[in-house]
Simulated assay, not measured.
Amino acid sequence: MSEFDELQAAIRRHAHARQAEAQACEAFLNALYHALRTASGPGLPLNNVTLDFTTDPANRLRPVPSGGFHAAWLRLGLCEVLVRVRRVDGAFQGEYGESGCFRLEQTGEDALITLARRMLRDVADTYAGAEPERIRPLN
């Protein structure tokens, strides 16, 4: 078997795991979008939040290998923020904006709304010239 054939076989062998991981990350990004829409509180939806899935600009391989980042642009009114997320040891680990980071062990509604509110504060701080919070678990 040639090196090329070995590469093709490896890609095929792990296709299901990669697809499951991609679906989980996209579902997480979609849930984060909904959390951002409701971050102002019950009955106060933010209508000017949109989600646009994109290829992560840091990925150098397609399809994305297991453990790679999946990305989306979230439009938050007058700005857009790139959010990158991947699965690490069963948790969602990600980055957003200039230097925002997160790690969520649980992805319940409260945890996602907490992350959404932190993201809004961090992005506002970036535009105001302040330093966003550094990585730390939210739950």
Rank of each mutant, 00 (worst) to 15 (best):
P132K: 11
F69C: 10
H14L: 14
D89W: 12
G90L: 07
P42K: 14
G90D: 02
A22Y: 12
L32H: 04
A91V: 00
L82E: 01
F28E: 03
L46F: 09
A31V: 04
C25D: 06
A128Y: 10
Q8W: 13
Y96F: 13
G67T: 00
A124Q: 14
F102L: 00
G67V: 06
A39N: 00
L61K: 12
E6F: 12
A128R: 10
V85I: 12
N59S: 14
F4T: 06
T126A: 13
V81K: 13
T38D: 00
G67I: 05
D122E: 08
L61Q: 15
P42W: 13
E133C: 10
R103F: 03
G67R: 05
W73P: 01
L61P: 01
L76K: 02
L104S: 03
F69Q: 13
G94N: 02
S2T: 11
R121W: 12
D122K: 08
T38E: 04
S40I: 02
R75F: 09
A10H: 11
T54Q: 11
D122W: 06
I113P: 02
R37E: 04
N48Y: 09
R18K: 00
L82M: 05
Y127C: 02
N48D: 14
L82F: 10
R136F: 11
P63W: 12
E3D: 04
Q106T: 04
H34G: 04
T38G: 03
E95F: 11
L115S: 03
E6G: 14
V123T: 08
L46N: 06
T54G: 09
A58K: 14
T50Y: 03
L120K: 07
V81F: 13
